[in-house]
Amino acid sequence: MTVDVIQSLILGIVQGITEWLPISSSGHLALTQLLFNIKVPVFFDLILHIGTLAGVIGFYRTDILKILKSVVYPRSLNAEEAKYYRNLLMLIIIGTIPTAIVAFSLRSLFEFSFYDFFLLSVGFLISGVFIFITKFFKKGSKSIGKFDAFLIGIAQGFSVFSSISRSGITISLGMMRQIDHYQLVKFSFLLSIPSIIGGSVFDFVLMDDAQLSTINDIHISSYIVGFLSAAIVGYITIKLLIDIINRGKLYYFAYYCLALGAILLIYSML
Rank of each mutant, 00 (worst) to 15 (best):
K39P: 02
L29E: 10
Y115P: 05
E81Q: 12
P41C: 08
S188T: 14
P22H: 07
K83P: 01
K186I: 12
S165I: 09
V71I: 15
V5I: 15
I93Y: 12
F124I: 03
T99C: 10
I193Q: 03
N246V: 01
D243G: 06
S143P: 00
I92D: 01
F132Y: 13
S222A: 15
V40H: 08
H181Y: 11
L89S: 11
S200H: 12
D45S: 14
G16N: 03
Y85V: 04
V233A: 02
P22S: 04
I93P: 01
M176D: 00
I50D: 08
G261R: 08
I154E: 08
G145C: 03
L91N: 13
T214A: 12
A210L: 10
I266M: 11
I245F: 03
S165M: 08
P41Q: 08
G128F: 10
I236Q: 03
S268F: 10
L270E: 06
F161D: 10
G153W: 09
P41F: 08
M90C: 01
L206T: 14
T170A: 05
V5P: 00
Y252K: 11
A79P: 02
E19Q: 12
L46D: 07
A259Y: 09
S165W: 06
L265P: 01
Y256L: 06
G153D: 09
D208F: 06
V201R: 08
